[in-house]
Design a protein around this nucleic acid. Structure first.
Lengths: 254, 254
DNA sequence: TCATCCAGATTGACTAGACAATATCCGTGA
DNA sequence: TCACGGATATTGTCTAGTCAATCTGGATGA
């Protein structure tokens, strides 16, 4: 019976399933090497191309990577906490939050970033959220953040031109007190924000900018900030690689 | 003279890039059919297997699907709004929220769900969040939600055994007033919650339960609810297919 | 009329090779 | 000792086929 089933399922799927299990069970741990294509083909009685198909399944599932000419290795991932609310609430606000930060703490990381400010035509996504027409000129403040020299996320903030004109937000330097504070000083304090999170596979451009391996999905996080009278004054687009981040929100019932 | 490898880029990548662009530019729209493998091979001067490789790239990117024996088609996705805060705040609380709901409104959808309650050993993920030891017995209330007969998400809530023992939460029926209210009635009102969102490719089991196509990542959303004195009384695990959901939060600065 | 069967088109799985690209290891020579 | 260069192992790309699985639609027959 079992033999029948294993004979029915394609060889490449049996190979993928076998090593998926070994990874899930912990028999193979992050960094461990898998057999070579040649060895797999021999072990499963198929040709190299079929073994490759099986391995490629695991690659697209984000479980392993290929390193030429070394072989295939189990991927490792550690999740840096990404906390949208930290923009406004600086520190862990409840004892529960502390527990999470203790586990995934940042030891010895050296963060850095690149900043680039430009005036661009609003994409449909940005235009809709800022309530301007598509193609209208808005200010884009683009950042790529790095930890230990490796890119961790893309952070593109967009502002209506008249809101930030001639302000320090338009200079491509770090605004130490925070762009949200700068926005408030310009007379546009944000009272509310809406967070939207989409999940998808990255575009080739994103794969390049974030140095993503195959099988790594991204979270696309839009933050639209509104003043008290309901005018959108900021739309931030974050692209977060799934293998490097966990997004954390905190809620309270009042 | 010879083949002169048209570019340095491999043929299968050129094929993928060509059709990725056509999809991005809107030349090919959701539901449209791509050329067959045979036609692509002829057009790009390669064999069928190479054309297949190019198409498989687009499949893993979630852009197209293969429907045997019809051909390849551009995928379509519509995002249902998933709003964790709706558990506690029933309706759009700000004018801005209204705008989002108008766009992605639910017309003529017929929701349904399956419910299954069991006592299970806590997985490490659940145990850590409920602050119990791994393997300790907890109550799992598993739901799969459907819209128009199609599964849209997995929703597994876990409770410490002593909290929900002999309560209606343990019966596999819909709790109309909501499990959170039921929990409060048992003497465990939740005062705070922590949301964690991970992004990854689905496991084969999740692909099966949610009827996911290849190239579809999922968001894994943990909600851990705490009473006012900091005791975790609920840990809910949501699995949301990336092609069907957008996660929406709303924030206020006070 | 209506159900049934079959041919055809298309993707899925696989074989059996070939040559290219790449990083490491190791031996050679200055 | 140390720099350089080639051998080697491994994955990456590709060709040229074969046979299987699946769905549609048209032909066939009661």
């Amino acid at each position: 019976m079992d033999k029948l089933r294993s004979a029915r399922t394609p060889a490449y799927q049996r190979i993928a399933a076998a090593y998926r299990d070994k990874i899930a069970s912990g028999e193979l741990r992050p960094g461990d090497q898998l057999p070579t294509e040649h060895e797999l083909a021999e072990a499963f009685g198929c040709v190299r191309q079929t073994a490759r198909s099986g391995l490629s399944v695991l690659i697209t599932e984000g479980l392993i990577i290929a390193r030429r000419p070394h072989g295939y290795f189990v991927r490792q991932r550690e999740h840096v906490v990404y906390r949208p609310q930290a923009e406004s609430r600086p520190l862990p606000a409840t004892p529960e939050m502390d527990r999470f930060f203790q586990q995934i703490t940042e030891e010895g990381r050296t963060p850095s970033q690149t900043i680039e400010v430009s005036m661009v035509a609003a994409t449909p996504e940005i235009a809709q959220r800022l309530q301007v027409s598509v193609g209208q000129v808005v200010v884009a403040r683009r950042r790529v953040r790095f930890i230990n020299g490796e890119p961790v996320n893309i952070n593109d903030s967009h502002y209506p031109l008249d809101v930030v004109k001639d302000s320090e937000i338009m200079s491509p330097a770090d605004v130490t007190r925070g762009t949200n504070q700068a926005l408030a000083d310009l007379g546009f304090p944000q009272a509310r924000a809406i967070d939207e999170i989409f999940v998808r596979m990255p575009t080739p451009d994103e794969m390049h900018r974030l140095d993503l391996g195959p099988g790594t999905p991204v979270a696309v996080h839009y933050v639209t900030g509104y003043t008290a009278d309901g005018r959108p004054v900021r739309c931030t687009l974050n692209v977060l690689p799934g293998d490097r981040h966990v997004i954390v929100f905190e809620r309270r019932w009042e």
